[in-house]
Each structure stands twice: as structure tokens, then as C-alpha cells.
């Protein structure tokens, strides 16, 4: 059952990706000021939205883990954090590649960019923390605490950076994304968002399956160990 829904999902992902890139190259118009480079937008924005989705899942799963102590919530939090960090990394890579030819600079301390960078740091910290705790239960609990506190920090970071920006003005170059978007661009964007959401789900499910298998392998190893002990005793 799970295998079948996985195959359907992968097929849908392939179709959606093909449709998305088809629309990017053959349907969406070339932006008049920025030129063809603007098409990075169709990858950059869906990646960013799905990264935020991932961090939302980390928060929710961490919260549920603390309430229930069910390891499946810890696995979900870990998987979402890893895929979320991957997507955030790509947002931070595609952003400067877009900015350099259009604005002549790699980076600007704009509110959205800065928030993305701070989020990336918080969740890289989350993943690093997990690597340095041996006991699985302690790891799950402490990571969940970071998953919860890290996320409630997000609105504070956002308001701080927003206000800081208005006080230390720089040339406004980011512009309101989505404002005055050509309808064909908007349609393409939505297809791309759908495709990248499917990509997120596909990666997330694979990561989650590995975590479940790892738990199973560990249980089998413990069983074998117990059986050996039993055999040695009798």
C-alpha cells in the first residue's frame, strides 16, 4: 500500500516537474527588465515556501513528540528538518545567482534574505545538535526542545529584521514579489509551487522511510544480541 502510493507520488512528481519546466521555458513570458534570469524566480520561491513548510512540520512534530514521546514524531521532525535545510540552502544559493546579474550584488541584507539565513543557521544547529547526542531518547527530547523554541523565535526575528531595515534603509531592490505579476507568470509559479511541494513530500517520505528502517535494524540487532546472551547463559 505504502509502496503503491509512493509510486503514484513519484509519477505525479515527474509529471508536475515536466509541466513546470515546460511552462517556465515555453509559456511564461520573459520579464522585460530582468530578462531570462528572472526565471530563477520559479525555482527560488517554491523552494523557499517549502522550506518554511518543512520548519513548520519540525515545530509541530517536536511539539507532538514532547506531548506523546512517540518516536515517530521525532523521525518526522528530523526528516522535515533535513529536507528543509536542503531547500533553504538552495534558496540561499539561487538567490545570489539571481541577484548578481540583475542588481550587480550577490547579497543584500533584505528582510526576507536575512530571515532565510537566520532560519538556516537555527536548523543547521538543530541537525548538528542531533549528531552529538548518543542516547536516542535524550537526542529526541533535546532536539524537540530546540525544534519548538527555534520556531517561536521566527516571528521575533522577522519583526526585528523588518524594523531594522526601515531604520537602516538601503536601496529597495527586492520589490514586492507577486505584485504586478503577469497572469501567465502567476500560473507558472503555482504549477512550480505544486511541483516543488511534491518534490518536498517525495524526499521527506524517503528520508522518513530510512529512519523507520534504521529503527527496525537496531531492534533486530538488539534481538540478536539478546538471543546470544540467552544462548550463552543456558
Amino acid at each position: 500500500m505504502a509502496r503503491r502510493s509512493g509510486m503514484i507520488l513519484d509519477a505525479a512528481l515527474l509529471i508536475a516537474m515536466a509541466a513546470a519546466f515546460g511552462m517556465i521555458f515555453f509559456y511564461a513570458p520573459i520579464e522585460s527588465e530582468m530578462g531570462i534570469v528572472q526565471k530563477i524566480f520559479y525555482v527560488h520561491v517554491p523552494l523557499a515556501w517549502n522550506a518554511f513548510l518543512g520548519f513548520g512540520i519540525v515545530f509541530f512534530s517536536s511539539f507532538r513528540y514532547l506531548a506523546t514521546r512517540d518516536p515517530k514524531w521525532d523521525m518526522r521532525a528530523l526528516s522535515a528538518a533535513e529536507v528543509g535545510v536542503l531547500f533553504t540552502t538552495l534558496v540561499l544559493i539561487t538567490g545570489p545567482i539571481w541577484a548578481k546579474p540583475v542588481w550587480g550584488i550577490w547579497w543584500t541584507w533584505d528582510a526576507r534574505l536575512t530571515l532565510t539565513l537566520v532560519l538556516w543557521l537555527i536548523y543547521v544547529g538543530y541537525l548538528m545538535l542531533r549528531r552529538y547526542i548518543e542516547s536516542p531518547e535524550r537526542r529526541a527530547v533535546l532536539a524537540a526542545v530546540v525544534g519548538v523554541t527555534g520556531f517561536i523565535d521566527v516571528p521575533l526575528v522577522y519583526f526585528a529584521i523588518r524594523w531594522w531595515r526601515t531604520q537602516h534603509p538601503q536601496p529597495v531592490i527586492a520589490g514586492g514579489e507577486g505584485s504586478g505579476l503577469d497572469p501567465r507568470m502567476a500560473t507558472t509559479l503555482w504549477i512550480c509551487v505544486a511541483a516543488f511541494t511534491l518534490l518536498f513530500v517525495a524526499l521527506y517520505r524517503r528520508r522518513l522511510a530510512i529512519e523507520a528502517m534504521r529503527a527496525r535494524a537496531e531492534a533486530l540487532r538488539d534481538d540478536a544480541e539478546a538471543a546470544r546472551m540467552e544462548g550463552a547463559r543456558s
Partner: peptide, 8 residues
């Protein structure tokens, strides 16, 4: 690594 980003 954990403390500085959160206290931004």
C-alpha cells in the same frame, strides 16, 4: 551554534 541565531 544554537544560542546565537536564536538570540538575533
Amino acid at each position: 551554534v544554537l544560542f546565537l541565531p536564536v538570540s538575533v
